[in-house]
């Protein structure tokens, strides 16, 4: 046998080995593809802001601005009157939002009860504002009683420090949970199982917090903060969003957060499938 034959044999061996390895790698990449897409290219939001303002008479929390794809939204704030007799039944309140280089955005609320805590509606649309407009936001509050203006003040709104939380196990993810010190916006739930909504048509999502600093999640340490119940399909299509306000003295950012997901075959399923998704901070939400 000549030297050249030995070389050819060696090359053949190398080539066969490389092709066997290549087949293994390609197969692994192929079978992992869905899993990889599911965990890597999750839902994205262009931006999310949460604003806060306070003066002697009002506390405004959780005024959000967001852009998700082409849809923009604002509102959802909680307005708490801090002085007694500030609001009376049938008062008309006009909340005007002044953005930099932009037409004012006006929302009107009819007061139902004396000193009622008000929640601003969420308004959505396209091209309402740009991210640059949110540099200097002013909120003008006007209260009219029997068509007479009795209160008119403008508050400067401050952006709040926000952290995005996420959670994932092998089959489920919960992404884009936005949290500030006293506010939380629920995230987007998704599953690798494409038939989940058929298997479990209803589901419950509980957002919980714990002041204990344990490494392991012990659900007995947690207190329920937000409760959502609805159709699984709505959760998967991200049609179900809610906002929670935490009124304790501590900051939500210093606590451990988790979600308890309950998947049910019927609305009153006595043996639902329940699991915990611990929420982990990933980034500043305002970037």
């Amino acid at each position: 046998m000549g030297v050249g034959d030995d070389m050819n044999k060696e090359i053949k061996k190398q080539l066969i080995l490389s092709f066997v390895l290549l087949t293994f790698v390609v197969m692994t990449l192929f079978f992992w593809y869905q899993n990889f897409i599911f965990h890597t290219y999750g839902e994205k939001i262009d931006y999310q802001y949460c604003l806060y303002a306070q003066n002697d008479e009002w506390q405004i929390e959780g005024y959000e601005f967001y852009q998700k794809g082409k849809t923009q939204g604002y509102g959802h704030a909680r307005m708490t009157p801090l002085q007694p007799q500030l609001l009376k039944k049938n008062d008309e309140m006009t909340v005007t939002l002044h953005l930099k280089n932009h037409q004012p955005l006006i929302q009107t609320i009819k007061v139902q009860n004396e000193n009622q805590v008000l929640f601003l509606e969420n308004k959505t649309g396209q091209n309402i504002f740009s991210e640059k407009d949110l540099q200097n936001v002013q909120l003008q509050i006007e209260v009219k009683r029997q068509k007479k203006s009795i209160y008119n003040q403008t508050l400067s709104m401050q952006k709040q420090d926000m952290i995005t939380y996420t959670s994932a196990n092998k089959d489920y993810t919960l992404t884009n949970v936005y949290v500030t010190e006293h506010w939380l916006k629920t995230g987007s739930f998704s599953s690798k199982d494409t038939k989940l909504a058929k298997k479990y048509p209803y589901m419950i999502v509980d957002y919980m917090y714990s002041k204990e600093e344990n490494q392991e999640v012990d659900i007995n340490d947690y207190e329920r903060f937000l409760y959502l119940k609805g159709k699984t399909e709505d959760f998967l299509n991200d049609h179900y969003k809610d906002h929670g306000f935490y009124d304790g003295e501590e900051s939500l950012l210093d606590m451990q957060l988790c979600c308890v997901i309950t998947l049910m075959k019927s609305e009153d399923d006595s043996q639902p499938y329940t699991f915990i998704l611990p929420l982990n901070p990933i980034q500043k939400g305002d970037s």
Binding site: S18, L22, V25, V26, L29, W32, F36, F38, H39, T40
Partner: peptide
Amino acid sequence: NIYTTLYFLLLWLLNYL
């Protein structure tokens, strides 16, 4: 997450092969 990192390493291995 580990899935993205592992996929990256696998893609590197594929490129190398």
